[in-house]
Simulated scan of single mutants.
Amino acid sequence: MPPPPIAPDGPGQVPYGYPGGPSAHAHPGPQYPSYAGPPPAVNGYGWPGMQPAPSDGMGTASLALGILAAVGFLLWPVAVVLGILAVIFGAIGRGRARRGEATNPGVALAGIICGATGIVLAFGLFAFAVAAFA
């Protein structure tokens, strides 16, 4: 048998035995401890006292640009620009690693080395081309 309809001015007292009535809460069943969830976040990020994630992007970008500069030195203008960017990003990445904001100082150093190598190879190719065809 369905429960009685709700009156236009709101529900009245629900009779005994209908869902939500007095017998619905008579035997609530086993009680389990409630999980309150994690503590409130500090500054909106993670757990209180948790360190922010390392920002390793500059070191990684330095290595990627350095490899492109060293491998693509035949396109010497592009290699020089990529090499300069690799050295700059590598220096920024090493600075972040020194301050503890990043965890990849070796990757940033490798980017500096590859970028400098790309610059030297590009200028060497340019000097060879000038000397050979002049």
Rank of each mutant, 00 (worst) to 15 (best):
P2Q: 06
P4N: 09
I6D: 08
A7L: 15
P8K: 13
D9C: 11
D9I: 12
D9H: 10
Q13S: 02
Q13V: 14
Q13F: 08
Q13A: 05
Y16F: 14
G17P: 07
G17W: 03
Y18G: 03
Y18M: 14
P19H: 12
P19A: 15
G20Y: 00
G21R: 04
G21F: 03
S23T: 15
A24M: 14
H27N: 13
H27K: 09
H27D: 11
P28Y: 06
P28F: 05
P30C: 04
Q31L: 15
Q31E: 10
Y32N: 09
A36L: 14
P38L: 03
P38K: 12
P39N: 00
P39A: 07
P40A: 11
P40H: 04
A41H: 03
V42M: 13
N43E: 15
N43W: 12
N43D: 15
Y45D: 14
G46V: 02
G46K: 00
P48G: 12
P48L: 10
P48R: 12
Q51I: 08
A53W: 01
P54L: 08
S55I: 03
D56Y: 00
D56W: 06
D56K: 06
D56N: 15
M58R: 10
M58L: 14
T60C: 09
A61Y: 12
L63N: 00
L63A: 10
A64G: 05
A64L: 13
L65F: 06
L65D: 07
L65P: 06
L65Y: 11
L65H: 01
I67T: 13
A69K: 09
A69W: 04
A70D: 00
V71P: 07
G72H: 02
G72K: 11
F73G: 08
F73C: 12
L74Q: 15
W76K: 02
W76Q: 04
W76G: 00
W76I: 06
P77I: 07
V78G: 05
A79G: 11
A79V: 00
A79M: 03
V80D: 13
V80T: 13
V80S: 10
V80P: 09
V81H: 13
G83P: 07
G83F: 08
A86M: 01
A86S: 11
V87Y: 02
V87T: 00
V87D: 07
I88M: 09
F89C: 09
F89W: 10
I92E: 04
G93P: 05
R94C: 11
R94P: 01
A97E: 09
A97M: 05
R98Q: 05
R99N: 14
G100D: 01
E101Q: 15
E101T: 10
E101G: 10
A102K: 05
N104V: 04
N104D: 08
P105W: 07
P105H: 01
P105I: 04
P105V: 02
G106D: 14
V107R: 10
A110F: 04
A110P: 05
A110N: 05
I112Q: 01
I113C: 07
C114Y: 12
C114P: 03
G115R: 04
A116K: 00
A116E: 05
I119K: 02
V120R: 02
L121N: 08
L121D: 07
A122K: 06
F123G: 03
F123V: 15
F123T: 09
F126K: 02
A127L: 14
F128S: 09
A129T: 14
A129E: 11
V130E: 01
A131Q: 13
A131Y: 11
A134L: 09
A134K: 01
